[in-house]
Write a protein that binds this DNA or RNA. Structure first.
Lengths: 147, 147
DNA sequence: GATTAACCCTACTAATTCAGTAGACTATAT
DNA sequence: ATATAGTCTACTGAATTAGTAGGGTTAATC
């Protein structure tokens, strides 16, 4: 139940981008340096994020990356799913399920309930937090959540 | 954000055991066959579950495995943690954190909030569901939960 | 007390995934 | 023109995963 480096770096890089893009396109190199991530590895990550239409790029000198939408409209869930595939604790819940298991076993049905609940909880939480929430103040603070 | 086969098999096997242990120790072979899991692989899983004191074993002919405690007192979270290590979406939240990252980067602090919330949500959910809940009726049905 | 059903445990291995590198190409501001 | 910066594919070494192999030990039963 761990995020890969790609997912973790991706979220960090997106936060970094959110904080800096007001000054125009941010070169990948800047972000890579600040976050201590290999430039070429981050390049791959940004390629996927662009294809998922979460960021857009400006080529040529003074180019770089920008968020594709307002930071309040990009959720952490979208970033994670773009980089790690569908959020699903077990194979058979990731729709293109041709992996390890395909619900052949009777008893499986008892466990699937847990995984569905878990997926919904994780997805709900991550989809409910935007980059703006993280970077410019947490909306949840209004409700005084109990941690 | 996917469970490994070990975690998934482990939960399924524990459910299987819960349903059958009333008739005395259940041989590993029975469970492996019913669940379609390699016997030797399941053996390794049960070794870890026994060391985590979630199951106990009876050796010799007519031996097998039993739950170490009442099924209502064994949570899915315990099973998963026994087999996959601490529930933590990123390395630096798993206490023995000597992995990839150790919060060296300033911006990291903005993302860590999400991962803490995620961990707490996942842990809370999995610790709140027992084997008895799954096998003998869901307590949550009383509260008519949405979804 | 031999047999045998069952658990116990370590070591190995093939396949996959992960994290990162390399390097060549394309666009554009100056 | 040239320098800057994104685009893209392919490769590689290390780690993890999923599973095998095979030799133990324990104890019920004949």
């Amino acid at each position: 139940m761990r995020l890969s480096a790609k997912g973790e770096y991706g979220v960090r890089a997106m936060i970094s981008l959110t904080l800096e893009e007001s000054g125009g396109p941010v070169p990948l190199r800047n972000i890579a340096e600040k976050e201590g991530i290999s430039e070429q590895f981050l390049e791959q990550i940004f390629l996927e994020l662009r294809r998922a239409e979460l960021i857009k790029s400006v080529r040529g000198p003074r180019g770089g990356y920008l968020l594709a939408r307002n930071s309040a409209e990009i959720s952490i869930g979208e970033i994670v799913e773009a980089l790690e595939g569908p959020i699903a604790p077990v194979d058979c819940l990731a729709q293109e399920g041709s992996g390890r298991n395909r619900c052949e076993h009777v008893r499986k049905c008892l466990s699937i309930d847990v995984w569905i609940k878990l997926r919904d909880a994780v997805k709900g939480l991550l989809d409910g937090i935007s980059l703006a929430d993280l970077c410019f103040g947490e909306k949840a603070e209004k409700t005084t959540a109990m941690v």
